[in-house]
Design a protein around this nucleic acid. Sequence first.
DNA 1: CCTGGCCGTTAAGGTTTCATCAAGATCATC
DNA 2: GATGATCTTGATGAAACCTTAACGGCCAGG
Lengths: 226, 226
Amino acid sequence: MTRVLVVDDEPSIVRALRINLTARKYEVSTASDGASGLAAVARDRPDVMILDLGLPDMDGTEVIRGVRGWSSTPIIVLSVWGQESQKVAALDAGADDYVTKPFGMDELLARLRAAVRRAAPAPDEPVVTTGHFTVDLAAKRVARNGGDGNVGLTPTEWQLLEVLVRNRGRLVTQRQLLQEVWGPAYETESNYLRVYMAQLRRKLEPEPSRPRYLLTEPGMGYRFEA
Amino acid sequence: MTRVLVVDDEPSIVRALRINLTARKYEVSTASDGASGLAAVARDRPDVMILDLGLPDMDGTEVIRGVRGWSSTPIIVLSVWGQESQKVAALDAGADDYVTKPFGMDELLARLRAAVRRAAPAPDEPVVTTGHFTVDLAAKRVARNGGDGNVGLTPTEWQLLEVLVRNRGRLVTQRQLLQEVWGPAYETESNYLRVYMAQLRRKLEPEPSRPRYLLTEPGMGYRFEA
DNA sequence: CCTGGCCGTTAAGGTTTCATCAAGATCATC
DNA sequence: GATGATCTTGATGAAACCTTAACGGCCAGG
C-alpha cells in the first residue's frame, strides 16, 4: 500500500485529498505546516509527498531542501496560479513535479502515479552506447568504440558525465549540474561547467567544436544525447 | 451521465438550455443568481458549469473565484456582446472558455464537449503530441514528428510554450501569459507576445502564416490546440 | 473612404551567455 | 619537499538571446 503524506494548511484541501486518496487505497497522513511536515517525513517514511508551497511557518523550498538532505522521496508541489518563479525554485530545490491550484483530482492522481512509478526500483541500464563511445556507469569506465583502452577521466569530469548520462535525453539545468557535482554553494559558478564540458567534449566528441552528444541548450543547460 | 450546471437569471435562456441539454442526455441543474450558483456547485458537483456574467447579485468574476478556490470544474462563460473587458477578466479569474450572446446552440454544445473532454483523465506523462510535433515537458524537448533531432527553443520561447501546453485546449489571456513568462510588471507588453508567438510558430507550425496549433483569439489571448 | 486599434513580421542594438585558452593554486603521492 | 595531475580563476572573441522600434495587413467604426 502506497503511503502519501499531504502537507497543506488549508483544511478543505487536506480533507478533499484524504477522501479521494483513501478511496483509492492510498494510506494518507497529513501535516499542516512545514516543521511538522518534515517531522512526518522522518516518522512515516512516505512513498510520496504532496507539498503546498504556501505554508505559514516556512518557505516551501526550505521544506524541500530539508527533505532532500537525506531522502529521495518524490515530492509533488502544489502552488497557486501565477507564481512561476516559485515553481521554478521548487523544482530546482528538488521537487519532482508541480500542480497549480485549483487542480483536478484526476490530474493530481495521474501525477502521483507517475511520481511513484518513477521512484520505483530504477531499471538502470548501467551501460550506455553511442555511435562513438560507450559509458559504463557501474564500472565507471568510458571506452571509445573500436579503439582500445579506456578514456581517462578525472573525478570531476566523471561526475559531470554521470549526471548527464543518467538523465540522457533530458535537459539538465546548469544549476542542477553545479549542485550535484560541486555542491549547493556553487550554484552560480557556471564557468566551471563551461571548462569541464569543453574537456569532456575534447575527450569524447569526434568533433569537439561541433558537439554531437554533449549538447548545449543556451540559457538553459546541457543535454546528453545517445 | 454528464452533469451540467446552468447559472443565468434570464428564464428564457435557462429554459432553452435545459431543453437542448436534456435532449442530448445531459443532466441539468440550474440557478438564477451567483449565491445559489455557488451553493449548487458545492451540492451537485457538476462536471461543467455554464455561467452568465450578468447576474443580479454579484459580479461574474466573483463567482468564478468562489468556485476556483477549491474546485477546477470547467467553467464556460456567457456574456453579452461588446463586454470584452468583462470576458478577459472572467478568463483571468479562471474561466475556461466563453461564448457571446446571442449564441448558436451548436457552438455552445461544441465548447461544452471540449470542456468536458479536457477535464477528463489527464495524461500520465507530460508529453503532448500533435499531428506535426511532440512536446515533452519533463525533458524540455520538442521534436518534429518524422523529422529527427529536436527543435531548439530559447528559454523565453520554452516558457511561453509550456504555459500554453499546460493549458492546452483552453484559452489563455495575454495578461496571464505575460505574467507567467515575464513577470507581473510586464502585463501590458503585449508586443513581446506577438514577437515570441511568431517565433514559436515559425519553429513549430507547418504553415506559420496559417497557424494550426498556436491559435490567436483576437482581443483575448492565445490557445494551444492539439 | 479614411482612421485607429490589434496583430504579424522583420531587423538592428545592446546585453548576456558560451567556448576556448592559459596561467596560477591546490592536492596527493612519493 | 618535489613532482605531476587536477582544480580554480581570469581574459577574450564569438555566438545566442532579449528588447525595442518600425512597417504593413486586416478589420471595425466613424
